[in-house]
Design a protein around this nucleic acid. Sequence first.
DNA 1: CAGCATCCAATTCGATACTG
DNA 2: CAGTATCGAATTGGATGCTG
Lengths: 138, 138
Amino acid sequence: MYPGDTEVTDQVGAACPIRDLLDRIGGRWSVRVIEELAGRTRRFTELERAIEGISRRMLARTLRALERDGLLARTVYPTVPATVEYALTPLALGLAALLAALADWARNHRSDVLAARERYDTEHGAPAGASTGAPESR
Amino acid sequence: MYPGDTEVTDQVGAACPIRDLLDRIGGRWSVRVIEELAGRTRRFTELERAIEGISRRMLARTLRALERDGLLARTVYPTVPATVEYALTPLALGLAALLAALADWARNHRSDVLAARERYDTEHGAPAGASTGAPESR
DNA sequence: CAGCATCCAATTCGATACTG
DNA sequence: CAGTATCGAATTGGATGCTG
């Protein structure tokens, strides 16, 4: 993913379609961007502000990767300090729906997962910073 | 993800549930493992052989991470060279279904994505090894 | 505003040797 | 069989200065 950069990796022929998809979607930000774009189009800076925590670089890279895969459309308006709008393509709509379902699952079972995790950490030796409410780190 | 190791990272309080989920599922192998376990239980070495490309280390780490989150159950049979069986938990079943849907989407739209990618690479300058059928690299 | 390039830190991953 | 421990290589991600 993330083509046209010093960090070119690509590799196209993934055996498993899901892996193939996750290589695209699995990036730290792709899903956030798709969610943000679901419903309304956005401009670069709008996304940058809305997503919080994303760097200019990663936003640009994520947008390009999604654009390259035909998941989002980029429209440039020749205004003076150029304006660029991003929008999901029809293709991406179906995917966005699936992702929404996944998000629902995650929301509905968050407590189950958290509970399981806590139990696991208790039964086995709880690792260093792996308590339930560990604060941010990076 | 992947607790209890030198490479501890964790960080629990993800703002977005989907991100939170992907941090767990987004690993290179989690989805493969879940798919492999869908339907039948498996033993460590069976998984290792079935998944192809996965290393002992990553399989062990992935299994542990999924177990910790309550997505799979590990059963040890006190035979002589110990036998261990892995199976999806009821909790994981729902997720597995969603992942299957995602896999379907990926399969059904693989050509669209590939086409979009090719078009993009043609219109813009095609990056080094980013042709359509580039062989493996990593 | 939008976005690319460069430098650098943090993580992930793979191969492999070793153990109960 | 079923892992764990260690090491080095590859990738990802963040900060930021620069340009049209």
